[in-house]
Design a protein around this nucleic acid. Structure first.
Lengths: 302, 302
DNA sequence: CATGATCCATAAAGAGGCCTTATGCCCGAT
DNA sequence: ATCGGGCATAAGGCCTCTTTATGGATCATG
């Protein structure tokens, strides 16, 4: 496409040469400018000559032991300097900005039940890093969304990303003490069937009852609503509306203080887990390393 | 010099990539930007990837059929655009400026007796070109002075410059009619010796008298002042102060209207001439071509 | 639902721009 | 007079960037 090319090149100066020009105009010396730019004096000379030919006029007067700006040079220099400081400012701002804000995409329940409680210690450890939490149940595509790091649940095999397991996505029935008491206590798995089951269509129920040795076909036909997030079902369960099947790790507090109880030790496990994931290509970006190191330590010590 | 290089590169963005980024951000399309820049889409993709790695964050979100700026990208784009428009403005101003002002270095007499009278027609022909005339008897060095084109007198052999002969630097005595009448007319070369000779040390006198077949050793011992420019001596001659030896081409008007008379057809010629000269490297610069073409035509048609 | 069109990513290979090395010239200073 | 600092120039090589070619993904269309 020679035409467009030519037109474009006529309008915009050769940038490399402009960069050299800026340095030479500032130092009024080819040698010093070349030093600053980390190249040889010959290279600087070459670039300036190039630019002078492009412009059609000399930019410097070669005096013995010293050079001077010609009239066109004098007109060009200040604008170039300003443009470059603008550029370099914006560039480092973009770098800093990219370093200063960490966008975490996470599942809703993980955000509300784990991250919200722990994030404080991260911010203490990294006061200069602002964290933006983006909660959604979608699977994020790092190429399509403005996300640095994510928490996903699943099998842990995704292409192009690094993964670290946070905890198993196990599942076991939980309910409020009051609801359990209302039928004289939940003593065996079959007792649960006397109670309302929250989201009875959930595959976890099938698997858990199977594990418990009970037929659970009946469940599938029960009416019920899927709330889409464990946190919602946990709330419903705490309110006494029924039995939920949840991942314990996400409800340590509720289980510890008795708002929810786990009637059976039997815990289902379909091999899924909660994972920390981020693009392999960005594994060494400082803020990503910082968050990764922090969350793994935090998970490990609890 | 790897150290300096690295430091420098950390501070300033890779300019070629920035140029591509600017176009992509404007079009929100790799393909369109590449078209505008006269390169392939693959090249644009490469440069953006490069810049993203340098910055440490994605600049665009790749959505189907469309891309979007990420947060860092949004911060970077406006500043880059502004810097570029500044640059391109200054650049074309420098070009225009370089194109719009023509600096002519000329000998004093040529300026006052030829250029001053003809320059008007050049400005009519090229109204957008401002001419700055720099008169000096020095030989200009195009690398050391801010001069586009010059008129020199001499043999016509200089390195690195294009030359065009304007007219021969011939010489013949001239004087005012009144001065000639004061000795009853100047009828033969020897009559001149009865009159004051302006700048008797001038080599031209030696050569002319030699040509006329007269001994002129006596002249060298006469007191006299060299005024340094033919124009001055012409003025002295017109005022009747003596006989000057001048180049006729420069005094056509004075000879035509009788302020000066040329008593003898005998004209000296030492092979020197007036030349138009300019750097070979700049022979195709438009304003230089314009001036050259104009002056050669002007000289030819008179 | 299949097909084609559009857009971006990627790999491989080639070209050319840019840098370095080496040298020369010029001027001023010791 | 010689030396030293500064810029210009030539030759050569590397490395960046570009092109070509291809694949994957999405969206529109019949």
């Amino acid at each position: 496409m020679p035409d467009l090319n030519a037109r474009q090149f006529a309008q915009l100066p050769p940038l490399q040469a402009i960069r050299v020009f800026e340095a030479v105009a500032r130092h009024l010396s080819f040698t010093k400018a070349a030093e600053e730019l980390g190249m040889t004096q010959a290279a600087a000379s070459y670039q300036i000559k190039l630019l002078e030919e492009r412009i059609g006029a000399p930019l410097f007067l070669r005096r013995p032991k010293q050079i001077e700006l010609t009239e066109p040079g004098q007109r060009l220099a200040p604008a170039v300097s300003e443009a470059f400081s603008l550029l370099s400012g914006a560039y480092s701002a973009a770098r800093a900005g990219a370093e200063g804000v960490l966008c975490v995409s996470t599942l809703l329940t993980f955000a509300s039940n784990w991250l919200a409680q722990h994030l404080g210690s991260f911010q203490v450890a990294h006061p200069s890093l602002a964290v933006r939490v983006d909660t959604s149940n979608r699977v994020v595509d790092f190429a399509r969304e403005d996300i640095d790091i994510a928490i996903r649940s699943g099998g842990g095999k995704w292409p192009g990303v690094e993964t670290h397991m946070l905890f198993k996505a196990d599942f076991t029935p939980v309910l409020s003490p009051r609801l359990a008491a209302s039928i004289g206590g939940v003593n065996e798995p079959a007792d649960l069937l006397k109670l309302p089951i929250l989201d009875p269509g959930d595959i976890w129920w099938q698997e858990w009852f199977e594990l418990a040795g009970l037929p659970a076909e009946e469940l599938a036909s029960r009416p019920g609503t899927s709330m889409g997030a464990q946190a919602y079902e946990a709330n419903a369960a705490m309110a006494g509306h029924g039995v939920a099947i949840l991942t314990r790790a996400l409800f340590k507090n509720e289980l510890a203080d008795g708002r929810l109880i786990q009637p059976f030790d039997l815990v289902g496990d379909d091999g899924h887990a909660y994972w920390l994931v981020y693009p392999t290509a960005r594994r060494n970006v400082p803020k990503i390393r910082a968050f990764r190191d922090w969350i793994l330590a935090e998970i490990a010590c609890q």
